[in-house]
Design a protein around this nucleic acid. Structure first.
Lengths: 149, 149
DNA sequence: AAATAAAAAGACCTTTTTATCTTTTATTTA
DNA sequence: TAAATAAAAGATAAAAAGGTCTTTTTATTT
């Protein structure tokens, strides 16, 4: 449904939102290590996110990435739109070109409510709100293998 | 979520279930045309499905693919398992390695019920039952651009 | 038996996605 | 102002997915 690129972008943006600010910028390398994604790949993604004004960056020593108040008003939808394109979230689960209430695929009425639900979540909550929720609930965002015992 | 290969395999198996039988076998070419998928690619997929005893085939003139009563007892889950592997249906929506009720990703509680739902549908209904449902509801299974006006 | 039709098998090609490497540019600090 | 640091930009490489082609095998029909 989502490409790995979008997933990386979402996770690292949420990570940024929680852990960085204009006063505490973070380098790609640190973020990549924290959530365990390949750092040159993440660097590329961040270029796109900066371009789309979803995150901010400053070059040079003490530089890095961070999220401004304005950035934080963007949504996860904006991330997906800029990396994968929103259609990726809307495609028919079985790949039919025309699949809607009028002409549904065999699983349309199972998939459709889910899509509406997740799209709503991604569109109606700002990244800052989303990030706050994640932090409040103590959720991890890393791809690392957690050692829970 | 599902690869194109799995989607092709599901659609064409359901198509077979509805339109072919031991008495009326169908060639790859005809099926590929009917649902508009690349026929050499479908041929490859069908090899795997025959191997997994999800569909049957006879070589030579008047040969082709069809579904026996025994075949029809298999499920869509079986198809997915043989083409993509079932894990594809179970992966975390945001790509986290460990994502469950104990340690949920930010959208886990939206995604999990949906996954249970669709997995149930794919596992508890046989291909024959599934196909009957599709036929009864007059659903189309083609990837073609339908001319509805 | 020969011709033919269809699937099986396997090699091969193309495109997309994922990932890396190198060079350039901007910023800071000593 | 030089050295160091970090992102930007762009070229390249590797892997996976998607798709095609050719040859072989099997079965049927004439």
């Amino acid at each position: 449904m989502l490409s790995r690129a979008s997933k990386y972008a979402i996770l690292s943006t949420l990570y940024l939102a929680e852990h960085a600010s204009k006063e505490k910028k973070m380098s790609v390398k640190k973020i990549a290590e924290a959530i365990d994604v390949p750092s040159p790949f993440l660097a590329k993604l961040f270029q796109q996110l900066v371009h789309a004004k979803i995150i901010s960056s400053i070059k040079g020593p003490k530089g890095g990435f961070f999220i401004t108040k304005k950035n934080g008003e963007k949504t996860v939808c904006d991330i997906i739109e800029n990396i994968d394109g929103l259609h990726k979230l809307n495609e028919c689960f079985l790949g039919l070109n025309e699949c809607d209430g009028e002409n549904p695929c065999p699983v349309h009425f199972i998939v459709e409510p889910f899509k509406r639900n997740i799209l709503g979540k991604f569109r109606d909550k700002s990244i800052m709100e989303f990030s706050k929720e994640v932090a409040d609930n103590g959720r991890f965002l890393t791809l690392k293998h957690l050692d829970l015992d």
